[in-house]
């Protein structure tokens, strides 16, 4: 695994909101199939790092390279297209479209990418089954539990078979049992599809699902594996 080329690397990322520096020279890299935990106290810049890596936020300085292309040099439309095709996302909460059924929510990224409705629905159901929530396929997010919702969100993130899955505190709103289950399913599914996972968390037990952790402190990312 170590021999593989990095999939996504970032060098010297800086990002400030007004006068608050959120990132101050952060480095990062992840290889295909790797699960990397981004840890650090709250407010240290973890989410900002994730947003930069995913091309949601443009850093003030530094470069991000994804499979040889410089992400920071792409325009918004290209980055959006990349997010549709190559990336998947799971956030803490509030991410499912409340009006759509769970199956429709999972099918949505495929539909945005232009997959036919039937094919998208089939894939959505398949993923709901893999995450053991196919029984709520026809329900709306308002009618299911937080753990189920988060599993639906994981299914939605993985349905496009992304190369990188970005997860920002995916268990933050769940109890330990549900959190464990979501992490187990998430890492298992990612391993099956050989997706790399950028896992932002401040919980050590969640980070323990990773292959390696990166600690962000005061906007600087520190790869303890490399440091050791």
């Amino acid at each position: 695994m170590t021999a593989a080329e990095p999939l996504l690397t970032a060098d010297g990322l800086c990002k400030s909101y007004g006068s608050t520096p959120a990132l101050d020279g952060a480095d990062f890299s992840i290889r295909p199939g790797e699960v990397v935990a981004v840890m650090g106290p709250s407010g240290s810049g973890k989410s900002t790092l994730l947003h930069c890596l995913a091309g949601i936020v443009v850093p003030d300085a530094g470069t991000i390279t994804y499979r040889g292309d410089e992400l920071s040099a792409m325009n918004d439309a290209r980055r959006s297209a990349l997010r549709r095709s190559d990336f998947g996302f799971v956030f803490q909460f509030g991410q499912l479209v409340p009006e759509l059924t769970c199956a429709e929510n999972v099918a949505l990224p495929l539909r945005l990418g232009g997959t036919s409705r039937k094919e998208a629905a089939r894939a959505a159901l398949e993923w709901l089954r893999r995450l053991e929530v196919d029984d709520v396929a026809a329900q709306r997010p308002g009618a299911i539990s937080g753990g189920q919702g988060q599993r639906v969100a994981v299914a939605r993130a993985l349905v496009t078979a992304p190369r990188v899955l970005f997860a920002d505190e995916p268990t933050g709103a769940l109890d330990s049992l549900n959190g464990e289950r979501v992490m187990q399913l998430l890492t298992a599914a990612a391993r099956d599809t050989d997706a790399a996972v950028v896992l932002v968390t401040h919980e050590a037990r969640v980070a323990a699902y990773s292959d390696r952790e990166v600690v962000v402190r005061d906007g600087r990312a520190r790869d303890t594996a490399r440091a050791a």
Binding site: A204, R205, A208, S210, V215, T224, A225
Partner: peptide, 19 residues
């Protein structure tokens, strides 16, 4: 940090065993 890495390493092993 070294201690944390060590702790995490152990936790990772335990998590793998759990799996």
């Amino acid at each position: 940090d070294v201690q944390r890495a060590e702790h995490l390493r152990l936790m990772r092993d335990l998590t793998e065993r759990k799996r």
